[in-house]
Amino acid sequence: MSPSVQVLAVLRRELDVERAGREVMVTTAPYVAAFVVLAGLAFGPAPSELARTAAGTVWLAVLVAAVTVGHSVAGVEIAEQSWDLLRGLVDPGALFLGKLLAVWAALGLTWLFASALVAVLFDAPPPGSAVWAGVCGTLGLAALTTALGVLVASGARRRGLLAALVLPAGLPALLAGTQLTTPGVPALPWAVMMATYAAVLLTVSWAVFPALLEE
């Protein structure tokens, strides 16, 4: 079985499970909606204030949602005792990439949803560079979340550590994402920054992932 086929099999399993239980969707979507509405109440209602805080609201929502999504990487699997069988059937590299693609998809949809909500509720349409931030930023966060999701979940205690680890490490995605989503900010340096962030986190997470799987 070739590695790419195995990656797709892991991704398919993730999608099948999500289709059957809609676990990530029903926890993340209402959460993001509540976050955006409450942010509007906290920062608004003056249109100028809302326009100024729109970009930051999108990325703060994505970053905090990454913590919720992170529990689906391995935390839920361990709680349902399906992690051992999954580890036995799939090579570490394929497991990482399959889970990464699933988390990337979840975070990408989260970003899309948050962006759309903010664009409407804050009346702040994002510039074109926001798409690059959406693609690269969610990829970097997905790599981080996949690695840390496994790292934290494989222990029975201190589940809250996932937030404590993901949030500070997600700072570059928050800043670069916010700048790329703010109209009028020079996009190129931030686009390079976001791509570098994604590339570095992808590489490092990939490298340490097999060690995280060992027990």
């Binding site: 690695a147 790292l151 680890l165 490490a169 997470s205 490298a207 995280l212």
Partner: peptide, 9 residues
């Protein structure tokens, strides 16, 4: 191993 991963990331 976990600590090393966090130390590197």
């Amino acid at each position: 191993r976990r600590a090393a991963a966090v130390g590197i990331i």
